[in-house]
Design a protein around this nucleic acid. Structure first.
Lengths: 81, 81
DNA sequence: TCTCATTTGTTCGTATGTATC
DNA sequence: AGATACATACGAACAAATGAG
């Protein structure tokens, strides 16, 4: 999934993967995203790298994060910018 | 605050700014310095550049650093060398 | 109330690659 | 050659919030 040699940074690659899952409704509105620990294991990345990816999703208006709980797909997914 | 075109390196400029804040007691003994992330944002520098500035403060005997916690103004600030 | 596991938040330590001066 | 500076990435430690029991 993640190409460590690509010109695109890993955290952007992961953000793009998750955005695809949200837009395709595989991760529907309100659903929790995989936890940072899960993303770490699943994609073989460092925790901070996964956190940066989720931060990108927040910037794109696709997810919100609640400390101690997790990150969740927003109810109204904005169109691609 | 930081002049990117000055002959003085940015990390020295930042160290000097922080030294001023310590000697003027705006950063009193025991107080935490701004985190590397905060310095990054506040001065528009790379994290490593901020880290170098804090390393200079340690060399000058003005601060100590604790991993996972932050950097702190020493209790006894030495006179200017 | 207390404890425990889970989860996110914050912070410093280190390394690599690239670019610039 | 060397110093400076930025971006990316992994590691590690510490902290706080949540929820289950």
């Amino acid at each position: 999934m993640i190409d460590p040699y690509a010109a695109v940074p890993r955290y952007i690659q992961l953000a793009n993967i998750l955005e695809d899952e949200i837009r395709s409704r595989r991760l529907p509105a309100g659903r929790a995203l995989p936890s940072e620990a899960t993303l770490q294991q699943r994609y073989g990345l460092a925790r901070q790298t996964c956190r940066k990816a989720v931060a990108v999703l927040r910037d794109r208006g696709l997810a919100i994060t609640v400390r101690g709980l997790g990150s969740f797909v927003v109810e109204k997914v904005p169109p691609r910018s």
